[in-house]
């Protein structure tokens, strides 16, 4: 399978039109993703307005250091996947594959770190409905905070998992010369998806980890 013989589907006139359609479709899909996550963020905003102190207290129970490292990991992975697209455009197959593998590895590292966070929260009794042992005046409001925390981060981790799988496939295909300077749309779309996962996390970080740290 070579990129040069990649056929243009018959509804398109030429490869340019095909790429335009594919990227536009992906961006439209990303807009729906923004609204998917958006409901959770909207729920977060409204609940936080109702229970500001409880949310600050809940946020102080999260692991800020780990959260910061996770953010750095995702930002770096975003850069790596951008570089892999660049490498493919310049014809560098090895470097591109390496970059993709690095991106996927960083994604997995993120998931593992988050797993540790979840485990720590389990031991602390911060998981609503499964093990929630908080007492005191903020306990109820914190439960709502942690509900949202789990909805948001689990949904995000689901996206990271899908992203890692996609990146794996793309790395494999890149290595097997499926893409070159002329044709690399699937890789481009995967990268866009991965960047969106990163952007979501960019907003998760201050809203979950940084509230009420100075108090």
């Amino acid at each position: 399978m070579s990129a040069r013989t990649h056929p243009v589907p018959e509804q398109f006139d030429d490869p340019v039109q095909q790429r335009e359609a594919a990227t536009l479709g992906m961006w439209a899909f990303l807009a729906t993703e923004v609204l998917f996550f958006g409901v959770l963020f909207a729920g977060y905003t409204l609940c936080r307005v109702m229970f500001p102190e409880a949310f600050a207290e809940g946020s102080r129970h999260t692991d800020m250091l780990l959260g910061t490292i996770e953010t750095a990991v995702l930002l770096t992975s975003s850069c790596a996947v951008a570089l892999s697209v660049r490498e493919v455009q310049l014809g560098g197959r090895r470097a591109a594959t390496a970059m993709l593998a690095l991106t996927a590895a960083l994604g997995i590292a993120f998931l593992v770190m988050h797993g540790f966070e979840y485990y720590a929260e389990y031991r602390e009794g911060l998981i609503p409905a499964i093990r929630y042992t908080q007492q005191g005046v903020y306990a109820r409001g914190m439960e709502i905070f942690y509900c949202l925390y789990y909805f948001i981060t689990l949904f995000h981790s689901l996206h990271v998992t899908v992203g890692v799988l996609l990146l794996g496939v793309m790395a494999w295909r890149t290595w097997h010369r499926a893409f070159d300077q002329d044709y690399h749309t699937p890789l481009e779309l995967t990268a866009l998806y991965w960047h969106l996962v990163d952007i979501v996390w960019i907003f998760v970080y201050p809203l979950i980890y940084l509230v009420g740290r100075s108090g």
Binding site: D14, P15, V16, Q17, R19, E20, T23, A72, L75, T76, S78, C79, A82, L83, V85, R86, Q89, L90, Q181, D182, Y183, E188
Partner: peptide, 25 residues
């Protein structure tokens, strides 16, 4: 006329990407 694939954005510069990562961090 048939247009070719090389229509997307030009590949960005390596330094640009790395500086962006630095700024993000």
């Amino acid at each position: 006329p048939q247009r070719t694939h090389r229509s997307g954005p030009r590949p960005p510069s390596l330094a640009g990407n790395l500086w962006t990562l630095a700024a993000l961090l």
